[in-house]
Amino acid sequence: MASEYTTTEYIQHHLTNAVMCTTENGIAFNKACSDAGFWSWHIDTLLWSIGLGVLFLWVFTNAARKATTGVPTKGQAFIEMTIEFVNSNVKETFHGKNAVIAPLALTIFVWVLLMNLMDLVPVDILPSIAGFIGSSAFGMDPHDVYMKAVPTTDLNLTFALALGVFFLIIYYSIKIKGISGFVKELTMQPFNHWAFIPVNFILESVTLIARPLSLALRLFGNLYASELIFILIATLGLWQLPLHFPWAVFHILVLPLQAFIFMMLTIVYLSLAHEDH
């Protein structure tokens, strides 16, 4: 914890994304973007998430390129274990034929897990490095350099994932059941009578929209809260030593669990979209 901060400032600093936007004067950052509205970018979220996504794909593509059907190397065995894990979950839940769901589930699981694992990086390291680079290379005040390194604590990312899943839910609902089938599903359930169509529509729409909403907010809420507590622990001076460790150990469970839940619910929602009533 940098000494010249107040605790509130410290927490706020750690929970603020680095923002980039374009103004009339060219590209601007952070506070200059406060009234840029929608068209501003969280460059730390984008950087870390895309970096981790590329890392995931690089590792897995390498493994795929070297994959042999004979005795696998340890690395290949580890990758195959992940594939098998995802594949068995998909097979247990989803019984149709779909070439997208399994790779989608794998991407979600590994990518979200990698992003969640950023939570275990001590909270000061990456902001300090970013502050150092910002101040020495660009002459910025280190307090004005923001670096929120856990992409899943950014609502933009969790909503992007959830909306992608939502889009696939609607796409497959219409593809499998046809537009009339999809509309019928929204209006003729749970009460199969024309007089109940408005009630049904409201109920089913809430059900439908609650899916991406809960996906996004669950992941965001869990990670944001745990990151906040990591930061709070970091403000406790020496007391952070005994407290940080159990909290981090606890997150060895929580972080994969959140990634798993996101993947599992995606599979469940998509298999529901494939079911014809």
């Binding site: 929970l15 994304n17 923002v19 840029a36 509205g37 929608f38 068209w39 501003s40 970018w41 969280h42 979220t45 984008l46 998430s49 895309i50 996504g53 995931f56 794909l57 997208v100 790779p103 989608l104 991407t107 990518w111 950014d154 609502l155 933009n156 990312l157 909503f159 992007a160 994932l161 909306l163 992608g164 944001y224």
Partner: peptide, 18 residues
């Protein structure tokens, strides 16, 4: 923690990764 254009960028990245 406001919603902004990052959402679009992430959605594109997600689609490309998948």
């Amino acid at each position: 923690m406001n919603i902004n254009a990052t959402l679009i960028g992430q959605a594109i990245a997600f689609a490309v990764f998948v």
